[in-house]
């Protein structure tokens, strides 16, 4: 995709990563490709690891945990953050933390430590006793659906000064959709309570090839099917 054709929000992400920003928050409506961008945009040559925050998530997923092996021994498994710190062994990787606003207090505190500046970040492996530090190139992208950045804790905002609102699907993600639906997917990504995610459009697109527009819209949109089909018909009057 030609970079000049990128929508403003995606161009900003690109610019931030090219400029060497390694702590980034992407926020906005779901289904616009924030995680996809975190996992793939910029320098991810050291690999990319993903964490999805929930209320009952523990530090085990962040730092690591012991797990019984087949022969009954307890074996240490690094968490996603530690894996990202070490990357491919030569260069640090990318840690993508989804739904950061849903992380509990303990996990949040651990994540703050893990995403601190390389000079401050340090962790001791409980199994080997080895001190681990993030390798050069380690970067973090956090994503959230909240719209008001003031809802995020100050400590996090301080570590992640660049926050970009993503209100449109990434053009590469749109390419998977039939051409006649792409504009609708762009417009509905940020449509408030009537928002339709890209994933929903994928499902509709796939179903309609087998069942036709009407039946597919009923299956996907249910009681909103008629409004959806009417809107498409009315939009075409200007085509």
């Amino acid at each position: 995709m030609n970079q000049q054709e990128l929508p403003v929000c995606w161009q900003e992400v690109n610019d931030a990563l090219v400029a060497g920003i390694d702590r980034l928050i992407l926020f906005g409506p779901p289904g616009t490709g924030k995680t996809f961008a975190g996992m793939s945009m910029g320098d991810v040559s050291g690999g990319a690891w993903r964490l999805i925050c929930t209320d009952d998530m523990t530090n085990a997923q962040v730092e690591g945990h012991y797990k019984p092996s087949a022969n009954g021994e307890w074996k240490w498994n690094d968490g996603q953050a530690i894996k990202a710190w070490q990357g491919d062994g030569l260069r640090g990787g990318r840690l993508v933390v989804d739904e950061i606003d849903k992380a509990g207090g303990d996990v949040f505190a651990t994540l703050l430590a893990m995403t601190d500046s390389p000079e401050s970040a340090s962790w001791e492996n409980p199994d080997s006793g080895r001190k681990v530090r993030p390798l050069d190139g380690f970067s973090v992208v956090m994503t959230t659906n909240i719209e008001d950045m003031r809802e995020l804790p100050e400590a996090l905002k301080d570590r992640f000064p660049v926050a970009i609102r993503i209100n449109q699907p990434h053009p590469n993600a749109l390419l998977k959709l039939s051409a006649d639906l792409r504009n609708y997917a762009i417009r509905m990504a940020d449509a408030g309570e009537r928002r339709i995610s890209l994933r929903t459009f994928y499902a509709f697109d796939s179903l309609r090839k087998q069942l036709g527009d009407e039946k597919a819209s009923k299956m996907v949109f249910r009681d909103r099917a008629q409004s959806f089909m009417d809107a498409i018909a009315l939009d075409k009057v200007g085509a």
Binding site: A191, R194, D235
Partner: peptide
């Protein structure tokens, strides 16, 4: 509910 957001 109509979907005016769909309109370009």
């Amino acid at each position: 509910q109509p979907m005016p957001e769909m309109l370009g």
